[in-house]
Nucleic acid binder design. Structure first.
Length: 422
RNA sequence: GGUGAGGUGGCUGAGUGGUCGAAAGCAGCGCUUUGCUAAAGCGCCGUACCCCAAAAGGGUACCGAGGGUUCGAAUCCCUCCCUCACCGCCA
């Protein structure tokens, strides 16, 4: 959520930054300014009336205690009460209107973000490794079928299309990857492991900005209050919601494994083959809560932490920075990690590392006390470390050998319990 | 799911209709005293928003959340959330 004061004081700046996203949100600034002015006007009038009522009510108390007649005062206060009720309604209506609108407006892209319309304008920041030389490449679907690593048809029988059921060695490989990544981030990178609930309240979804705008993409329970978490970002970032953290306990670094549930409404057709895009997938997520001045340095290290997974698995990848038009709703700056999939003959996004600055903490009222004793909104960051299905797919594709076995990276072998899948 | 007891400032905890944004204690900050530490004394010590060009200053709201009663609500009533205890059910 943007700061209404920033919008009030620098409307042109806000319009200009929003315009770089290409979503047309800059057009809402004027509406917001109008509501803000209304709100403040009503609030000022309301406060004046409240002050008067407060004073007169005390006078009534005084008069009564002296045994004097206070009927006239009471009538006056009663009248003020009616006016207050009216103004109160106006004030809270304007207040809600303002908040509702603010919740719909995306974050401002970082000043240095590459400006562009869509993914084609995303610059590559760096790359690691090189494409493997493979002959007669089978893609992950063929490999998975051949080695019985997952069963798409039976998963559809259970839950419909877009679901996957890992089987046998495939299920074990999935589990090994999760364990491997959790160990790496907790032991080598200093993250605290969280195992959060997968169902989260509506407020949490608003806090991390999945709601109100993207409700159609979420799985909600019937009561409308609980949602299946679309990413561990939601429960983990909201862990400290409504708190004031001490400066000396920052940054908070959390890692969590959870399944992720997404309707992916309207996304069928592209990049949906096999297990590339499903309604439920596993992910290990990194989350940081930082002091405002450190968040960009923390984004670099968080991204490096995610990259480390791919490096240890020996998978070729590139890091791209999202341009303004491709940036997620709440993010000010995002790096995507894309791993090379020989089967898809394409790079696949396996991680998205973002700095939300105070966009989320404003929504969830998460602050920290500065050394000057003043409360400030923390900055939040998150990144996949990593998403499982695409990593799984790439791993088996890259591990395929001429003799038909799938060779696993050395680092993973102790977790899987074998060097290869036969 | 049922019954009962609760939710007050960083913490403990008083407060059942008016002068209560809220006693007191602890923690924290400043000053005084002191050879150091300690102790004692004094003062300060919540958050958000509004007015003001800004500062100074002034004001309003907030005692789990939201409604209601009342001239006036931390205090009375209703709904919800949460915590604790016991019962039921259950991996």
């Amino acid at each position: 959520m943007l700061d209404i004061r920033l919008i009030r004081e620098k409307p042109d700046f806000v319009r200009e930054r929003l315009a770089t996203r290409g979503g047309g949100d800059e057009a809402r600034v004027d509406e917001l300014l109008r509501i803000d002015a209304q709100r403040r006007k009503a609030e000022t009038a309301l406060q004046a009336l409240n002050a008067e009522r407060k004073k007169l009510s005390k006078d009534i108390g005084t008069k009564r205690s002296r045994g004097e007649d206070s009927t006239e005062l009471e009538n006056r206060v009663r009248q003020i009460g009616d006016d207050i009720a009216l103004l109160n309604e106006q004030t809270s209506a304007a207040d809600h209107q303002q908040r509702d609108l603010l919740l719909q407006i995306p974050n401002l892209p970082h000043a240095a973000a590459p400006v562009g319309r869509d993914a084609s304008a995303n610059p590559t920041v760096r790359a690691w490794g090189s494409k493997p030389q493979l002959a007669n490449v089978l893609d992950h679907v063929a490999l998975g079928t051949k080695h019985k690593l997952f069963d798409m048809e039976r998963a559809a029988k259970l839950s419909g299309s877009g679901f996957i059921c890992f089987t046998g060695a495939g299920a074990r490989l999935e589990r090994a990857l999760i364990q491997f990544m959790l160990d790496l981030h907790t032991r080598e990178h200093g993250y605290t492991e969280l195992s959060p609930p997968f169902l989260v309240r509506r407020e949490c979804m608003v806090g991390t900005s999945q709601l109100p705008k993207f409700e159609a993409d979420m799985y909600g329970l019937e009561d409308g209050q609980l949602f299946l978490a679309p990413t561990a970002e939601v429960p983990v970032t909201n862990f400290h919601r409504d708190e004031i953290l001490r400066a000396d306990e920052l940054p908070k670094k959390f890692v969590a494994y959870t399944p992720c549930f997404r309707r992916e409404a309207g996304s069928a057709g592209r990049e949906t083959r096999g297990i590339i895009r499903v309604h439920q997938f596993d992910k290990v997520e990194l989350v940081k809560i930082t002091a405002p001045e450190n968040s960009y340095a923390e984004l670099e290290s968080l991204t490096a932490n995610a990259e480390k997974v791919l490096q240890l698995l020996g998978l070729h990848y590139r890091v791209i920075e999202l341009c303004t038009g491709d940036l997620g709703f709440g993010s000010a700056k995002t790096y995507d990690l894309e791993v090379w999939s020989p089967g898809q003959n394409a790079y696949l996004e396996v991680s998205s590392c973002s700095n939300f600055e105070d966009f989320q903490t404003r929504r969830m009222n998460l602050r920290c006390k500065g050394t000057d004793g003043k409360n400030r909104f923390c900055h939040t960051l998150n990144g996949s470390g990593l998403a499982l299905p695409r990593l799984f797919a790439t791993l088996i594709e890259c591990g395929q050998t001429a003799d038909g076995t799938i060779r696993l990276p050395e680092k993973l072998q102790p977790y899987f319990g074998a060097a290869e899948i036969r």
